[in-house]
Design a protein around this nucleic acid. Structure first.
Length: 523
RNA sequence: CCCGGGGUGGAGCAGUGGUAGCUCGCCAGGCUCAUAACCUGGAGGUCGCAGGUUCAAAUCCUGCCCCCGGAACCA
């Protein structure tokens, strides 16, 4: 058996101090499309997601609820995974950073960096709130006071371990220059270069006196500061520190999908950590944009927050409509590299026009025409009766262009092309030749028109396999195409069906002899 | 103050040098196979402002105005 190329992709791990929101979902969906696309393209894919549990906030939240921290984390992890399952996220692994595989790997890693001389003991000095029993940054304070305890923090210093981040400034800049594709999109690349050029400070990577978290192997009184631990999930999940064969198989990551806000950690701190440990760097970091919510009534952008209780639950969207509608909206409407907006009204608009009225309706009309006029079987094509294919680019170049958009994560452009250059032309050719009339005078010619329409559906199904896995399969599986659903590739969308082979409709009809709609309209 | 993103017909967005495009909405037709869907045509934009480069700019350069986000545990 020949070895297939591997593709290892990750998303950021999420803080489980609240249930997942649409922003988390946006990232998972975008990564999932990539994972599914790569599997179609023949890669051996490992898709990792997970939760980031070694934070003080999580321990505090658990304490508030009177729960054991680990039990709380496990419960949240299952709540997150419930949402991801409902969204058809096809991850291969879900890591919790409280797992022992992660702890072990982290300890190995930090020891290694320590042995290489990039960690040293120093003194941390900062503003400490005695009420919170925690250090505060300037932005935590309101009028110089801790907002929860209404008192000014005091200067306090304590010993801690520092990572020699500053030593990597030149090497990082050299790496960005040598690998311009490392940070995507381009705007994020510029941001990071700028940040690193402005100078790096050594960072504190330890915490003192915490019960929850990972102990530092060379000084057990300390725990590992969350970022230094969190980033390592990408390696510990695939075996770093406990399964070297697996680790060697998958590392380095092909792409880390992250929110644009944590670009610096992934593009500066993370590669520096790997350099310090003398390990290979990931190939690419993709910082996607954010989804904001627009209020349907006021038309204003909404700042979602737990305390205001106005967080949009992904589950609401899924149960109210469908995971497919959810996936489609975010991928079509919110450019992955940039920002997007969500509103219930806009959601219904996009769903109705693209999914119900266009794709879904095209499927209905084709299926019904086939059923009513051909008994569900479109005969082999008669060359003399063949009509010109719908306007638009030739199938092979459209397939190449859609694939290229998917590879660069310009999902909105990929979907736009599928609709404007593949589906719209199919609806137009129907109107132009009116096969429902034509079938009475020239059945062969009408059949040729229908073939073009079936082709459009077949191609759409292939293109949409990573985006709408269920609907795409349902469309594809409604016909007896030769290539199996499991083995289709994007390049198949660039080909045409063999004209000498009949096309049989295999879809089931309901009691009334009708085909149930693919995407029922939202009213 | 600094950094990043953005300002395109009523709304939301594509579009990085060569007749301004898409979705929704609106108006008028057509069609009836289809999920009251689909197709055609129309109204509606001096592409934030001011300069500049060019035979040619929404698209490149300069300055300014406005909006959003960020500045190290927030996707």
């Amino acid at each position: 058996m020949t070895a297939r190329p591997k593709f290892f992709l990750t998303t950021a791990i999420d803080y489980p101090n609240a249930r997942p929101h649409i922003g988390h979902a946006f990232e998972k969906i975008g990564a999932d499309v990539q994972a599914r696309y790569r599997r179609m393209a023949g890669f051996d894919v490992y898709f990792l997601i997970g939760n980031d549990e070694n934070t003080i906030k999580v321990a505090k939240r658990a304490a508030e609820l009177g729960q054991d921290t680990k039990a709380y984390c496990d419960d949240m992890a299952s709540q997150f995974q419930e949402v991801w399952a409902a969204l058809d996220i096809s991850h291969d692994d879900f890591i919790q950073t409280s797992e022992s595989r992660h702890h072990e790997g982290c300890r190995r890693f930090i020891q290694r960096v320590f042995d290489n001389g990039f960690i040293y003991k120093g003194t941390y000095e900062g503003l400490y709130c005695e009420g919170c029993e925690a250090f505060k940054t300037d932005k935590d304070l309101v009028d110089g006071q801790c907002p929860t305890h209404r008192r000014a923090p005091v200067r306090r210093s304590e010993p801690g371990y520092y990572f020699a981040f500053s030593k990597f400034q030149d090497r990082l800049l050299a790496h960005y220059a040598a690998h311009p594709e490392f940070i995507q999109p381009q705007s994020r690349h510029n941001e990071v270069v700028n940040f690193v050029q402005s100078g790096l400070q050594d960072t504190l990577i330890s915490r003192h006196g915490e019960q929850w978290g990972i102990r530092i192997p060379f000084d057990e009184e300390f725990t590992i500061y969350v970022w230094f631990d969190a980033l390592l999930n990408y390696m510990t999940a695939i075996g770093f520190g406990h399964d070297e064969t697996q680790w060697a198989r998958w590392w380095p990551a092909d792409v880390h999908f992250i929110g644009k806000d944590i670009t610096r950690f992934h593009c500066a701190l993370w590669p520096a950590m790997l350099m310090a440990a003398e390990l290979p760097l990931p190939h690419k970091v993709f910082g996607h944009g954010f989804v904001q919510r627009r209020d349907d009534r006021t038309g204003e952008l909404v700042k979602e927050s737990k305390t205001l209780g106005n967080v949009t639950e992904p589950m609401d969207l899924i149960t109210k409509f469908s995971s497919e509608g959810f996936r489609f909206f975010f991928m079509r409407e919110c450019p992955f590299p940039g920002d997007g907006e969500f509103s219930w009204q806009r959601f219904a608009e996009v769903y109705n026009s693209d999914l119900a009225n266009n794709l879904g309706n095209l499927f209905s009309r084709v299926a019904t025409l086939l059923l009513k006029n051909y008994g569900g079987e479109l005969p082999a094509i008669d060359a003399a009766a063949a009509v010109e294919p719908p306007e638009g680019p030739d199938p092979a170049s459209l397939a190449a262009s859609v694939a290229s958009h998917v590879e660069t994560c310009d999902y909105h452009l990929a979907l736009e092309a599928i609709w404007r250059q593949n589906l719209d032309p199919a609806n137009r050719i129907a109107d132009r030749y009116e096969p429902w009339k034509l079938v009475k005078s020239d059945k062969a010619k009408a059949g040729s028109v229908l073939r073009h329409m079936v082709e459009a559906l077949r191609r759409a199904a292939i293109y949409l396999k990573p985006f709408l896995p269920r609907a795409a399969q349902r469309i594809y599986g409604s016909f007896d195409f030769e290539t199996s659903w499991e083995s289709v590739r994007y390049t198949d969308a660039g080909t045409s069906l063999p004209p000498d082979r009949p096309i049989r409709l295999t879809v089931a009809v309901d009691e009334k002899g009708k085909i149930p709609p693919l995407f029922p309209r939202i009213d």
